[in-house]
């Protein structure tokens, strides 16, 4: 079973970090994994995206022509990638920023106002972690405790305040998609 996810948004929203943290935690779980960033002529404020493939066997291509999940952090990302999502797949949308909704009927859409939620928690930059909370719950690729442990390793344990807000942001997103 192979699950591919595209993360996309503005450069600076922590889109690449969402991908690496998923890839890293899936690796800790013992899965095969590839992470492929869009590279080259990218710029701050421009669009950023990356693809993560997680599988229980060897992964042939790290490119996702038909991803199972699409995580949309800004509006252009929705228009660029929504048609690629495989039928029956899911789109998770940062509804604080994205006003449009997908035009497709054969997919499940989740709206998470993750920028607003992060702001309420005191740091709007944790929007990506709120989204990861929702994503981890919906996708069921990695258990939440493994993800949180990996996240702490990546971010470093020195900044206690950061670890704390990340944990709260993650929990907020995780709980939100239950409602």
């Amino acid at each position: 079973m192979i699950i591919k996810t595209i993360f996309s948004g503005f450069g600076g929203q922590g889109v690449m970090m969402m991908g690496t943290s998923l890839a890293q935690s899936a690796m800790s779980k013992g899965c095969h994994v590839t992470y492929l960033p869009a590279y080259g002529a990218e710029m701050r404020g421009g669009t950023a995206n990356c693809t993560v493939a997680v599988s229980d066997e060897e992964i042939a291509s790290p490119v996702a022509s038909e991803p199972n999940y699409l995580v949309v952090m800004n509006q252009p990302a929705l228009f660029t990638f929504q048609n690629r999502v495989t039928a029956g797949g899911s789109i998770l949308i940062n509804s604080s920023i994205v006003e449009a909704s997908p035009s497709r009927q054969d997919i499940t859409t989740f709206y998470i106002p993750c920028t607003d939620m992060a702001q309420e928690l005191g740091n709007s930059r944790a929007a990506n972690i709120v989204m990861m909370g929702a994503f981890v719950r919906q996708s069921d690729i990695v258990p939440p405790e493994i993800y949180l442990k990996t996240l702490e390793t990546i971010m470093g344990s020195r900044k206690k305040a950061l670890a704390d807000i990340n944990r709260r942001a993650f929990a907020a997103g995780y709980e939100y998609v239950q409602k």
Binding site: T20, A23, M27, H32, V33, T34, Y35, L36, P37, Y39, P62, V63
Partner: peptide
């Protein structure tokens, strides 16, 4: 190639 260089794997 560029994909091998950019891609992350365990």
């Amino acid at each position: 190639d560029g994909m091998m260089g950019q891609m992350m794997e365990p």
